Amino acid sequence: MEYLVMLPGPTNVPNRVMNAMLAPVINHRSEDFRVLYRSIIEKTQKLFQTQSDVILLSSSGTGAVESSVVNLIRKGDKVVIPVNGEFSTRLADLIDSWGGQSIRIESPYGENPSYDEFEEVFDEHKDIKALYVVYNETSTGTTIRYMDKLGDLCGRKNAFYIADSVSILGGDELPVDKWNIDICVTASQKAIAAPPGVSPISVSPKAKKYIQENPAPILYFNLKRYFKYYSEHFETPFTPALPLCYAYDEALNLIFEEGLENRIKRHRKCADAFYEGLGAMGLTPYAKPDARSNVVIAVNYLEGVDDKKFRDLLSNEFKVLVAGGFGNLKGRVFRIGSMGEVNKYHVVRTLSAIESAFRMMGIDVPSGSINKAISKLN
């Protein structure tokens, strides 16, 4: 039996996408590559729902996030960022280490700050350059549900708006242009359901102008260089991960065959099913109700459950992989990646394995979780 990869990334990859990597290696300075790359960029723009420039980095999502910082932020720049988990903390630390001045709007893990707090910070500081937001905090299963209002706020205050959407784009709403997002970052191995290693970035005309007039003192992640190579040659400045480009292209094909709206609905249904089924076992979500993610389900452990023993049991006996908690959540929660090609089979098999694993550990959980979950999938 193959592993069922229910991690918050990398996720299960459809066979069609894996097989696409068997395509022959081509010259990345050839017309063959230019045709492929133009096609990928156009499809990615459609996925992001943007008319803006799109850049494809051969890197992890973290590399793309770092690129957004080093190309836009300069010494002393004030940057607002909500902090409520591991990845938003890392991003705030990155901004500070690059010389920016992060203004952190902190809230308890599992919760989001109120929108009014952003208004207050912008009113207090008249020289804010940018707002960075981790749209989906992977470490806590928390999603910000007022991204559109933050875009309006940045527009009124003439601040750049940057969305770290690594773990959510392709699995939930994200109309980049409609929400006034200047830089949007994601990665291939999450809701897009491709192998890791490709990280697309969209850059608005406003952000592009700034980046071109104020080039970053770096080489590989220098976005100005990527703009130049694409506009002049329809190429990347450095050798791209060609097999991953083929896989990413095929993953995009699958997304549009299903339809983006249908895909988002499927993710929402599967999330509802997970929350319902886990709740039937007596488990509670870590995130507050108004902040719960549709792509990362973070769940509090029942009293006395050993994290490693539980996840090892799932892996070894049932071939189901889920993730543990980060930092001070280690041992307190486990996380399910409900993203990518997730469907009824993934939900039912995962819940069945979790229920059985608890019973094997001597924990009496109520039965009926599968039926509860299925009621949300029909």
Score class of each variant (00 low, 15 high):
Met6Ile: 05
Met6Asp: 01
Gly9Ile: 01
Pro10Asn: 08
Pro10Met: 04
Arg16Ser: 08
Val17Thr: 03
Ala23Trp: 12
Ala23Met: 13
Ile26Asn: 03
Val35Tyr: 08
Leu36Cys: 04
Arg38Leu: 14
Ser39His: 14
Ser39Asn: 14
Gln45Asp: 06
Gln49Lys: 15
Gln51Tyr: 13
Ser59Cys: 09
Thr62Gly: 07
Val65Ala: 02
Ser68Leu: 03
Gly85Cys: 06
Ala92Gln: 07
Ser97Pro: 05
Ser97Asn: 12
Gln101Leu: 14
Ser102Thr: 15
Ile103Gly: 10
Ile103Cys: 10
Arg104Cys: 09
Arg104Tyr: 10
Ile105Leu: 02
Asn112Ser: 11
Asp127Thr: 06
Lys129Ser: 04
Leu131Met: 11
Tyr135His: 14
Gly141Gln: 03
Ile144Met: 10
Arg145Cys: 07
Lys149Cys: 01
Leu150Asp: 00
Lys157Val: 08
Val166Thr: 08
Gly170Val: 00
Gly170Cys: 09
Trp179Ile: 00
Ile181Ser: 01
Ala187Met: 11
Ala187Arg: 05
Lys190Phe: 12
Pro205Ala: 09
Ala207Thr: 10
Gln212Phe: 04
Pro217Asn: 15
Leu219His: 15
Lys228Leu: 14
Ser231Gly: 10
His233Ile: 03
Thr236His: 04
Pro237His: 11
Pro243Tyr: 14
Ala247Gly: 13
Tyr248His: 04
Ile255Tyr: 06
Glu261Asn: 14
Glu261His: 14
Ile264Ser: 01
Cys270Ala: 13
Gly279Phe: 01
Met281Ile: 11
Asp290Glu: 13
Ser293Asp: 04
Val296Asn: 01
Asn300Lys: 14
Leu302Arg: 08
Val305Cys: 07
Asp306Pro: 15
Phe310Gln: 02
Ser315Gly: 07
Asn316Gly: 05
Phe318Arg: 07
Lys319Glu: 05
Ala323Gly: 06
Gly324Asn: 09
Leu329Tyr: 07
Phe334Trp: 07
Arg335Ser: 01
Ser338Lys: 02
Thr350Leu: 13
Ile363Arg: 15
Asp364Gly: 04
Val365Tyr: 10
Val365Met: 10
Ser369Ile: 00
Ile370Lys: 11
Asn371His: 14
Lys376Asp: 02
Leu377Thr: 03
